[in-house]
Design a protein around this nucleic acid. Structure first.
Lengths: 168, 168
DNA sequence: GTGAATTTTCAGTAATTTTTGAAAATTCAA
DNA sequence: TTGAATTTTCAAAAATTACTGAAAATTCAC
């Protein structure tokens, strides 16, 4: 297998994986492409490599920057913008976890909280069972939230960070 | 908020959450509906509750059964099939983790392994950087795999299972 | 400041995914 | 067996999501 073939396989596989996780195939592919590129790439290079339009590259690259896993690189004396991906996979995972927590976990926690304010006869078994399920969901989501906070905090602290070395 | 309103909010929110995670909105809604239903529901009841077609209910319920988080219930002396969701959220999460590991993590690990067989001059810096990135991905995915295995095993063992109580 | 290079936007189009609904298959009580 | 009840399938339609391409906006070297 040549270098180029290997890269293409990875870009392809990453795209497939992405779509199983609610990330558009193209966005995941752009990410993979930048991940395996030794140099930052320009919009035109990405267009060429993935055979997609300028607008598409622009949108996806911007989204990846919003996720905090791709940065814009400016070369002095050049108008063109280049992009590079965060190469430390642990940092990527951490960043994605942080964002998803904010974008998805916290909103659902808010909904669960709101739903708990249901005013109804707690002696009605139907209400009771519902309240229980919601409570369990809250407990679970709350634990997930706390655990993520702990990992993120550990990550950011040089001291506790040491403990994660075994995973990294 | 009445019981019915609260249920609808939850079904709605669960559907939204699902689509952020690569699960079709309807499938997530069917799951939520069964989660908060005190009784197993028939196809017709689900159709009615979510205003979707018979075929749609059938497909989604089948998929949920494939994930192992919904079961078919047969009432004696009735032709109709009823469905109920696993109510223990921890079990649901564990089951989903198990399946996703099998369906997504393991395949990408295989791709990474295959890609490592690249035959190329390791002194070429471009090849070296690529090999490094792939190695890091492998290390990361491998760790994730092992960690999941550990949790799943702990879950299945009464002894180690105790340690997870603090999370559950 | 000017204007060429470059990025961004977005309406329209294309591709993909999901849903429908009716026909076919299956199941089982009688 | 038969046939009514029920489930399953799947081609076509609808809905959603992603992409294009060209025009508008922006940026910066001169």
């Amino acid at each position: 297998m040549t270098l180029e073939e290997a890269k293409q396989h990875l870009v392809q596989a990453w795209g497939t994986l992405g779509s199983s996780w609610g990330v558009s195939r193209t966005m995941a592919q752009v990410h993979a492409l930048l991940l395996v590129s030794p140099e930052p790439m320009s919009t035109e290079e990405i267009m060429e490599a993935l055979q997609i339009s300028r607008g598409n590259v622009n949108m996806n690259v911007r989204d990846l920057m919003d996720w905090g896993i791709v940065r814009k690189i400016l070369k002095t004396g050049e108008r063109k913008e280049y992009f590079e991906a965060e190469k430390d996979i642990w940092k990527v995972a951490m960043q994605v976890a942080k964002e998803r927590k904010k974008r998805e976990l916290e909103p659902i926690l808010r909904v669960l909280e709101e739903i708990s304010t249901i005013e109804a006869d707690i002696t009605d078994p139907k209400v009771k069972q519902f309240a229980e399920t919601v409570d369990n969901l809250k407990k679970f989501a709350g634990n997930a939230d706390q655990s993520l906070n702990a990992i993120i905090k550990a990550e950011e602290s040089w001291f506790w960070g040491g403990f994660l070395k075994m995973f990294k």
